[in-house]
Design a protein around this nucleic acid. Structure first.
Lengths: 217, 217
DNA sequence: CGATCGATTGATTCCAATCAACGTGAGTGG
DNA sequence: CCACTCACGTTGATTGGAATCAATCGATCG
């Protein structure tokens, strides 16, 4: 059982893998999802809260004419599915074969402590910050800046100067509000300028991190 | 003392205007702000929570080269300044001469009640939902759709089929990720098509709400 | 070793930005 | 009260960046 102090500190510290572990498996069940399998649908009731155990997840919203916007990507330890309302505004799908810990909200409610409430609230606040940064990115950055910012964020999360992309070019395009062709051109440009170097299609190294940071603004 | 169930329910219920009034003046102090006056700055510590009493507020983020993104607009009853981290990502300024209720966070923590928790949760959830919709708008909508969506939202908030814009064309542009000229052209187009009708520069009526909704997607 | 899906590259188009000029209306002082 | 002023908004001409259309490349998998 976790103490109040631990939980409170968790609430006001930076996101971390350690804290994320506090959604105990005793509360929910770990389920496997295949690549591209839907975890929950848009406009479905938000009855569950989720945590990535293994693999990766994207949240997406589809417009009636097929245009797609990706809300965010989630990696092991990340909590997702905390929605502002009763219903999910975005759907969630596995990027690759994944294991997801699923906790029913009613279970949370029954066993809830004030600390758990606050943990959920902390998750919501983290979501809010990322959404706000996404807004700045989408509203005022050029294609080059968008792609540079995206790569910077990926690398920061992975903490190293190389990383593996869990998602396709189409996913990146739909996250950045661009087309797949534009994403491809910008990646090529970054490579031509010796700022990044790809090894295969999914793995890359940052060669000139100063230049990348400058491009990301 | 608050029960777990009450607190949990507060977290997942709908926002409402009635509840918004509950941030009591006993907890904080109402301050006047002049047009364009800063309420808090970007990267400042988020020590306070705010509620619009009178007037209107915008939150903005400035890039180093002067590009500006507006996060959201707030009207009487709206709570703002609930930030994901210790520091504000956006700054806040009065759109017109306004009165703002300011509550210190530490006060909130000390005197926390069910109602207060609920109010802060509701504020955070509303922020998140609006940010997510903003992401969809910025990422995947055309200029015409952006402006139509914006007007729809304004009208919905005001509940009528006419409304007054509290902000300038530049503010609208910076909210929608467009230029002032494009906003102007789209407004002209909507008027030419008999979908809206302006009375002066700030007041408008929705003439054909079906068409407006269709344009907003 | 094809076959197939995803990614890249090239040619062209188009929407919104930019550059520029002109209107307009709210606020001010004579 | 009116004319002046100046910031704000609209409209027009042109440019430019990303989308679209199209073809080829390349990597993963049977």
């Amino acid at each position: 059982m976790l103490s109040t102090v631990q939980s409170y500190n968790a609430l006001f510290s930076q996101p971390s893998a350690t804290r994320a572990g506090q959604l105990s498996t005793q509360l929910g069940v770990s389920l496997p999802y295949a690549r591209d399998e839907e975890i929950y649908g848009q406009d479905e009731d938000a009855d569950f809260i989720y945590q990535v155990v293994k693999g990766a997840v994207r949240t997406t919203r589809l417009m009636s004419d097929g245009r797609r916007q990706i809300g965010d990507f989630y990696y092991p330890g990340d909590v997702f599915g905390i929605e502002p309302d009763e219903a999910h505004l975005f759907s969630a799908e596995a990027l690759s074969d994944s294991v997801i810990l699923v906790v029913k909200r009613s279970t949370l409610r029954d066993t809830a402590t004030v600390e758990l409430d606050r943990l959920v609230y902390a998750g919501a606040r983290r979501e809010l910050r990322r959404a706000q940064e996404h807004v700045l990115l989408l509203g005022r950055k050029s294609a080059r800046e968008k792609v540079a910012t995206f790569l910077m964020n990926i690398v920061e999360r992975m903490s190293g100067d190389g990383a593996r992309l869990s998602m396709s070019r189409q996913d990146i395009a739909d996250y950045l509000g661009l087309t797949i062709e534009t994403v491809s051109r910008m990646l090529t440009q970054l490579q031509t300028n010796r700022i990044i170097a790809f090894v295969g299609l999914r793995d890359f190294q940052v060669v000139n991190s100063g230049a990348l940071a400058r491009l990301a603004e």
